[in-house]
Design a protein around this nucleic acid. Structure first.
Lengths: 239, 239
DNA sequence: CGGCATATTGAACCTGGTCAAGCGGAGTGG
DNA sequence: CCACTCCGCTTGACCAGGTTCAATATGCCG
C-alpha cells in the first residue's frame, strides 16, 4: 500500500509509518526507541473546524503534533482582546507554553478539519530520561520556539505592514515546501482577521497590502487561494 | 558571617550559599543535589559594562544566571538592525535561545558592572537525567521564556506607547520587589535607546512618554533614576 | 576644558488605524 | 427556489499616534 494513497485523517497509523515522522521525531532515534515513543502517543484525534484542542487556563498534560490540517494558537490579553500567537502546520508541535505553569496559557483551535497526535508530557519526560536524544530534541524544539517568537518580535517592532505580510507568506511557502507541497500555490488556512491579529495589523491593512501586491504582480489572491508570482521580490521584502 | 554583608561580585560563593539560590535553582532540590549542581557551575565571572558574554553565531555550550548587575540580549535582524530581546536581572537565566541550533542566536552584553554564573549545558543535561526535578525545572524555565515572549508580542502588536512604557516599568518594579529591593525607587540599567528598541518605539517617543508621565505625577525621572509615584495608575496602564 | 554620546523638546510628515459603505458567497427559512 | 441575513473581505476618505528631522540641553570621560 502506497503511503500517499492513505487518507491523512486515518488514525490507525503508528509513528514509524507516519509521513510526518521525519519532522516531529528526533532524527537519531533507534527503531526500538520509536516504538517506545509510539506507545505513549495517542494518535488520530480528528477535529472539525473551530473545535478547540484546549483552552487557556486548563491543566496542562500534553503537547500535540499536527498530523493534518492547521491549528491556531491564541491568548486573551488581560485587557480582554485576542492575540494570535501562532499557526501550526502538519509536522509541527504546539502546546509547549503550558509546561511552565502547568496550565496552558494559549488556547488552540482547528482552523479547518484537522487531526493531531497527543503526547502526554509526563510520559515524555520519563522517556526523556531513558532516551537522552529525546530530551535533547525537546530542549531544541522549545528553544526554536523561543527564537521563532523573538524573530516575530523583531518583525512587529521594526517592519512595515508590507514586510510583515510578505514575511508570513514566505514562511508559509517555506513550510509548504518542507511538506513537499507547492511553495507558490496554496490556500491560506486562516482568515484575514487572524493574519492581521498575528501581525499586529488591522484586517483592512492586510487586505490593502494583498491588493497592492497583486497590482504589482507579486502574487495573485482570490479569497484564500494564493499564487506567489515573484518570489525574489517577496523574499526581499521579507528579508 | 551575614550573607547581606558580602560583596555581590564576590566569586567564591557556592550555590548553596548564594542569595539568588531560591530564584535560579529548582525549589525541590535536595542538599546533595545542590552540591552536584554546584560542581558543574562556574561561578563568578565579573564583567565590566559593555563586555559581551557571547555573540550571536558563536557555538552554544552554556546557559548563564545573572548574579549581580544586568544583562541585555539582542539580535541583529537580517536587515542589519539591532533588536533588543530581553533585559536580565539578578536570579534570571539567559542563553537558552542557543539550544535549538547549537549556536547563540542572540548576543549578550553587560549593561553595567555585573557578574554571572556559567552553566555548561551538556553537563546540565546529564545531570537532568539523574535529577528529574532538574529536567522539569529547565523545561519550565524555557516554557516561561516562551510565554514571556508571547506577552511581549501582544504588547507590541496591540498597545500604545504609554502602555508599553508603563508595562516595562511595572515589570522592572515587580522584579525588583522579588529581589527584595524597592519596587518604587530604582535605577534603570538601560539607555532610552534600549528601552525604545525593546518596545518597538523611538528614543524620542520614550523620552516624551516619560516626560508626560512626570507631568501627570505618575512618576519622577532624573536620567536613569526613577521613582514611581502612582503605582495604581501605572498598573492600570500596563494592564 | 573640550568633545562625543545621551536625552529632551519642537514641528512637519506619513503609515497605518478608524469609520463607513458596498460586495459576494454561504446558510436559512418562508 | 428565491429572498434575506450574516459574515468575511475589499475599498475609500479621513484622522491620529508615532516617526523623522532638527535644534538644544546635559552629562561623561579623556
Amino acid at each position: 500500500m502506497s503511503m500517499d494513497s492513505v487518507c491523512p485523517h486515518n488514525n490507525t497509523f503508528h509513528c514509524g509509518d507516519c509521513r510526518m515522522n521525519a519532522l516531529c521525531l528526533p532524527l537519531a532515534l533507534q527503531t526500538k526507541e520509536v516504538e517506545r515513543l509510539d506507545e505513549i502517543i495517542q494518535r488520530g484525534k480528528p477535529l472539525q473546524k473551530d473545535h478547540h484542542i484546549y483552552h487557556a487556563g486548563e491543566e496542562f498534560d500534553s503537547v500535540f503534533a499536527v498530523r493534518s490540517g492547521s491549528i491556531k494558537s491564541y491568548t486573551i490579553s488581560n485587557s480582554g482582546q485576542e492575540q494570535v500567537t501562532g499557526f501550526h502546520l502538519p509536522g509541527e508541535i504546539f502546546g509547549m507554553d503550558g509546561i511552565g505553569q502547568n496550565r496552558y496559557t494559549n488556547s488552540a483551535v482547528a482552523m479547518e478539519t484537522s487531526s493531531v497526535c497527543e503526547i502526554p508530557f509526563n510520559r515524555l519526560q520519563e522517556l526523556s530520561i531513558a532516551i537522552p536524544t529525546l530530551q535533547r530534541h525537546f530542549f531544541q524544539l522549545m528553544s526554536l520556539e523561543i527564537t521563532g517568537d523573538q524573530q516575530l518580535l523583531s518583525l512587529l517592532s521594526k517592519n512595515t505592514a508590507e514586510e510583515r505580510v510578505a514575511t508570513l507568506l514566505m514562511s508559509i511557502s517555506n513550510r509548504n515546501f518542507r511538506l513537499k507541497l507547492s511553495a507558490t500555490r496554496f490556500r491560506l488556512p486562516m482568515s484575514r482577521a487572524d493574519i492581521g491579529n498575528y501581525l499586529g495589523l488591522t484586517v483592512e491593512t492586510v487586505s490593502r497590502v494583498l491588493s497592492r501586491f497583486q497590482k504589482q504582480a507579486l502574487l495573485k489572491v482570490d479569497k484564500k487561494e494564493v499564487e506567489l508570482l515573484n518570489l525574489d521580490k517577496l523574499r526581499e521584502l521579507a528579508n
